[in-house]
Nucleic acid binder design. Structure first.
Lengths: 201, 201
DNA sequence: GTCTATACTTCGATAGAC
DNA sequence: GTCTATCGAAGTATAGAC
C-alpha cells in the first residue's frame, strides 16, 4: 500500500495562506495602502499569479469580512443557546472574545476596512453585521426579561455598550501580554456586569 | 469710517474648510481611497491649488490626528483637574464624549487611519495617544486610591475597558438619533460605574 | 499554477503663467 | 491663491506562454 498523502497532508498551500496573509497586511497597512504586488510578494508569487485565485482585490476584503462575521455569529449563537439565562452574557463575552482574538487580523480588518468595499458588497457585510448585533441585543432583552439585567436602560444601548467593550479590545489586546483571552473575558465580564465602583466597605 | 470686515467676517475660507472636509472624506472612504483630486473637488479648487496649502497628502492626516488628540487631552485634563475625586470618572466620560462626538470625523479618522502615516509621524501620534491613555489611567489610579473604584482589577485594564467604551461609541453614535451626547455619557457612566446586573429585588 | 511582459488607469506632486 | 498642463511613479488587472 503506497504512502498516502491527503487529509494527513500538512502542506500549507498558497490558497490556504491567501486570506490570513491578506488580513495581516490589510490590518497593518490598511486596505488602500496594501498593493496586490506587496501581497503577492509575501505569498511568494507574482501579482499575476495572485489573479489566478481572485477576480479583484476587493474579493479578498469581502471574504475576510464575511467569514469573520459568519464565524463569530455561529460561535456566539451556539455557545449562548445552551447556556442558562443567568450565564448567557458571560458566555457571549467569552465566546466573542475567543473568536475575535484568535483571528484578530480578520476581525480588525472587518471592523475598520469594511468601508472600502464596493457598494453592494458593503451592504451585504453591513447586513451581516446588523444580524450579529441583533443577536447581542436579543440576549440583553432576554436577560432583562429574566430579571438578570437592569431594565432602566434601553436594551439597544446596553447592547451597544457591550459591543464597545468587545470590539475595541481587538485593537490593544496583546496575545503575548500578561492577560490571556480568557482572563480578559473575566475582566470585561466583571466590569460590564458589576461595574467598577467600589462596594461599600 | 469705511465698512470694516475682519473678525466680524463670517466668510469660510478654503484654509478653514481644508481639515474638516478632509476628515469627513477620510472617515467615509478611508485615507488610502481618498484622492487629492476628490478632496480638491469637494473644496471647489483644483488639486494643484490644494498643494498651495499642504506639502503632501499626509500633512492632512497628521494635522487631523494631532489636533484631535490635543483637543481631547486638554478638554479631559482641564475638566477632571477641578473635579472632586468621586466625580472625576463621570466628568472624564462626559468631557471625552462631548469632545470626540462634536468632531467625530477627526476622532474616527485618528483612531482608524493613524496607521497610514509615515513612520516618524506615526510615532509622534502614538506618543500623543499614549500620553492621553496615561491620563485616563492616572484618573483610575487616583480613584482606586480614594476608595471610589474597586482595586481588585489592575488600573491598566480598568482604564482600557473605559477607553473601549468611549472609543467605539464614535462609530455608531448618531447626532440625529434619540440620544444626545450628554445622555450617552449618562448611559456609559451608569454601565461603567455600576454595571448592568439587576440589583436584588 | 506560475511566469514574463505589459496594457491601461489613477495617483501624488510639480512647473510656471496669471 | 488659483489655474492649465503634465510628469513620473505606482496601482490594478490582463494576455498568453510554459
Amino acid at each position: 500500500m503506497p504512502r498516502e498523502r491527503k487529509s494527513v497532508n500538512s502542506d500549507v498551500t498558497t490558497a490556504d495562506r491567501l486570506i490570513p496573509v491578506a488580513a495581516a497586511l490589510f490590518r497593518r497597512l490598511g486596505y488602500g495602502q496594501t498593493s496586490t504586488r506587496e501581497l503577492a510578494l509575501r505569498l511568494g508569487i507574482t501579482s499575476a499569479t495572485l489573479y489566478h485565485y481572485i477576480n479583484g482585490k476587493d474579493d479578498l476584503l469581502f471574504q475576510i469580512c464575511s467569514s469573520a462575521l459568519t464565524h463569530i455569529d455561529e460561535a456566539v449563537r451556539k455557545a449562548t443557546a445552551s447556556a442558562p439565562v443567568e450565564k448567557k452574557i458571560e458566555v457571549a463575552i467569552r465566546s466573542h472574545l475567543i473568536c475575535a482574538l484568535i483571528d484578530s487580523d480578520s476581525h480588525a480588518t472587518m471592523l475598520v476596512e469594511m468601508k472600502a468595499l464596493p457598494t453592494e458588497r458593503k451592504a451585504a457585510i453591513i447586513r451581516q453585521r446588523d444580524q450579529y448585533e441583533e443577536l447581542i441585543r436579543t440576549l440583553i432583552v432576554e436577560s432583562q426579561q429574566a430579571g438578570v439585567v437592569r431594565a432602566d436602560i434601553d436594551a439597544k444601548y446596553v447592547a451597544l455598550a457591550l459591543l464597545n467593550l468587545l470590539n475595541w479590545s481587538i485593537f490593544w489586546f496583546d496575545p503575548n501580554g500578561s492577560l490571556s483571552e480568557s482572563e480578559l473575558a473575566d475582566v470585561l465580564s466583571k466590569v460590564f456586569l458589576d461595574g467598577v465602583r467600589a462596594s461599600e466597605p
